[in-house]
Measured scan of single mutants.
Amino acid sequence: EVTIKANLIFANGSTQTAEFKGTFEKATSEAYAYADTLKKDNGEYTVDVADKGYTLNAKFAG
């Protein structure tokens, strides 16, 4: 089991951190699915991958 950390950075400057656990593939998929649920209210996002894929920095356009 691994933990994927998602740093969510919103256009207004606020941030949120979420963690997803499971296999690498499952946890990564859940992190992206969570970011997708936030698109409606926060706009499209881009992701910078860090820490060999164990940290995802998602920046929302607003």
Rank of each mutant, 00 (worst) to 15 (best):
E1P: 10
E1V: 14
V2M: 05
T3F: 06
T3N: 05
I4N: 00
I4E: 00
I4D: 00
K5A: 06
K5Q: 08
N7K: 08
N7F: 14
N7R: 10
N7M: 10
L8E: 00
L8V: 08
I9K: 07
I9N: 06
I9Y: 13
F10D: 00
F10G: 00
F10T: 03
A11K: 09
A11H: 09
A11E: 07
A11G: 08
N12Q: 05
G13A: 05
G13I: 03
S14G: 08
S14L: 13
S14A: 12
S14W: 13
T15F: 12
T15L: 11
T15V: 14
Q16V: 14
Q16L: 14
T17H: 11
T17E: 08
A18E: 09
A18Q: 12
A18H: 14
A18Y: 14
E19I: 15
F20R: 00
K21W: 10
G22I: 03
G22Q: 01
T23E: 08
T23Q: 07
T23M: 06
F24P: 05
F24C: 07
F24T: 03
E25P: 06
E25Y: 09
E25F: 09
E25Q: 11
K26G: 11
K26V: 12
K26I: 11
A27I: 03
A27F: 03
T28Q: 09
T28D: 02
S29C: 15
S29V: 10
E30P: 01
E30L: 14
E30S: 09
E30Y: 08
A31R: 01
A31Y: 03
A31L: 08
A31C: 06
Y32T: 05
Y32A: 02
Y32G: 00
A33Y: 07
A33P: 00
A33R: 11
Y34P: 01
Y34E: 00
A35Q: 02
D36V: 05
D36C: 09
D36E: 13
D36K: 05
D36S: 06
D36P: 00
T37L: 13
T37F: 12
T37I: 10
T37E: 11
L38R: 06
L38M: 12
L38T: 01
L38E: 04
K40N: 10
K40Y: 10
K40I: 12
D41K: 11
D41Y: 13
G43R: 01
G43E: 04
G43P: 02
G43V: 03
G43K: 02
E44S: 11
E44T: 10
E44V: 09
E44D: 12
E44P: 14
E44N: 11
Y45L: 04
Y45V: 05
Y45M: 04
Y45W: 05
T46V: 12
V47K: 03
V47S: 05
V47G: 02
V47N: 01
D48R: 10
D48S: 14
D48T: 15
D48C: 15
D48M: 12
D48W: 13
V49M: 09
V49F: 12
V49I: 13
V49T: 09
V49Y: 09
A50P: 03
A50T: 13
A50F: 11
A50Y: 11
A50V: 13
D51M: 04
D51Q: 04
D51P: 00
K52L: 12
K52W: 13
K52S: 14
K52P: 03
G53L: 01
G53V: 02
Y54W: 07
Y54V: 04
Y54H: 10
Y54Q: 06
T55H: 03
T55M: 06
T55N: 03
T55A: 04
L56M: 07
N57Y: 13
N57W: 10
N57I: 14
N57F: 11
A58C: 15
A58H: 06
K59N: 09
F60M: 00
A61E: 12
G62K: 08
